[in-house]
């Protein structure tokens, strides 16, 4: 498999488009030889991160690097950032708006669900500037 990079710009607040990038990645992964279980872990982690950018940030970039060993997803947003990452990682803790909750999100499950689906997960944030995530899923169960 040749290495591949996919890049997406994410608009904050635009719930109509939320999930478009994750959907494109899913379509690409389906074309290469990866098990459905692994694809599901990758796209659920990415979709949670994409929804977080839409829900909390002004805008963001998602870079997806795919090679024969892993899928490496970087999500970098400009936004309010996270004051207390440890607290944000706790299931049930959320700062989501009413609008986000009305869409069925904002239950404080997203970051922990990303961690659960990823093999490696790094989150960094600068309050007032933005948040960056690095999500890596290994492709060791390539068919």
């Amino acid at each position: 498999m040749t290495a591949m990079q996919l890049k997406f710009h994410i608009e904050g607040g635009n719930f109509t488009k939320a999930g478009f990038a994750s959907s494109e990645v899913k379509k690409y992964l389906r074309k290469i030889n990866i098990s459905n279980e692994t694809i599901k872990r990758i796209v659920i982690a990415m979709y949670e991160a994409e929804v977080n950018v839409v829900a909390h940030a002004y805008e963001g970039e998602i870079l997806v690097n795919i090679d024969s060993k892993k899928v490496d997803i970087s999500v970098i947003d400009k936004g309010p950032g996270i004051e207390d990452i440890e607290l944000a990682m706790k299931e049930g803790f959320s700062t989501a708006s009413q609008k986000v909750r009305e869409m069925g999100f904002g239950a404080g499950m997203g970051l922990s669900n990303i961690k659960r689906n990823a093999n490696e997960f790094i989150i960094k944030s600068q309050p007032g500037e933005g948040t960056s995530l690095n999500i890596i899923v290994y492709l060791n169960n390539v068919n």
């Binding site: 719930f15 999930g19 994750s22 979709y47 869409m103 069925g104 999100f105 404080g108 499950m109």
Partner: peptide, 25 residues
Amino acid sequence: MSDVLTINAKNILLITGMANIQTIR
């Protein structure tokens, strides 16, 4: 939807009263 994203099973039917584009996503 946050809970739907945590389930791990195949051939699932989703029963929901949440009718928006993110339900489908």
